[in-house]
Design a protein around this nucleic acid. Structure first.
Lengths: 115, 115
DNA sequence: AGGTTATTGCACCAAGTGGTTCAGTGAACT
DNA sequence: AGTTCACTGAACCACTTGGTGCAATAACCT
């Protein structure tokens, strides 16, 4: 599902997936080891169906991988997708730092001399 | 607007803001210097109203700062908000790396020996 | 003053999100 | 076989999102 997607789609899904506090907590929880849908849902007091949807979003973003084992679904952290998010943010930060070093430096300067 | 928000709200808004390809391009454009709503809208063939909304989302996330100068609104990159996003991703990555170093290391190993 | 320009607010629309409940389905236990 | 358990799919709901067009406003130009 994550394959054959162009870069901006990957970023869209990745950032959208981690733009939700519940889903970020799910990732943190899975950082401590695999869990089932039910185990993930319990601490949130959320319905299984609701949690299933969150996991699905994370899975579509490649951040989580799931596998049906017996009657339960085991969820664990995905393998690499967050690298893309990180590298885009780094790219943007370079733009941002360059802006500070560039023409707008006078702005910061003015601000300083004002006080 | 960005003040007096708890951390998870900041992250929600920041990640949601950059989860859209159009808005990421806006940030890149603003990395080359300030622009008006109209200048931002033009390359996308988008209505001014539409662009205004995107800018508003970015502004709410603290990623962009705007100021009315004459009849135009000058938009430029915000000052620091992306740091929060970056540091959360770093935090998550530590979890992820720990997972790799832990019990699941055998998994990576198997993958390598398969080929 | 009068005309042009740039943005803005409002109303609208289709599609997506985050949640629910309820009725299956398939695996595990007795 | 029958029961229980964990998940799943479908339908629903209120709210948000990413767009649009149009009318109003405010600034600038002549």
């Amino acid at each position: 599902m994550v394959n054959h997607m162009v870069q901006h789609e990957v970023l869209d899904r990745t950032f959208a997936a981690i733009a939700d506090a519940t889903r970020r907590q799910i990732l943190v929880r899975l950082g401590q080891g695999p869990a089932s849908i039910g185990e993930l849902a319990e601490p949130f007091g959320m319905s299984l169906t609701g949690m299933k949807k969150h996991v699905h979003v994370l899975e579509n973003a490649g951040l989580v991988v799931t596998e049906k084992v017996g009657r339960a679904r085991q969820c664990r952290l995905g393998t690499e997708r967050l690298e893309d998010a990180m590298s885009w943010i780094r790219f943007y930060q370079r733009l941002w730092e360059r802006r500070l070093d560039g023409l707008d430096a006078y702005f910061t300067l003015n601000k300083e001399t004002e006080q």
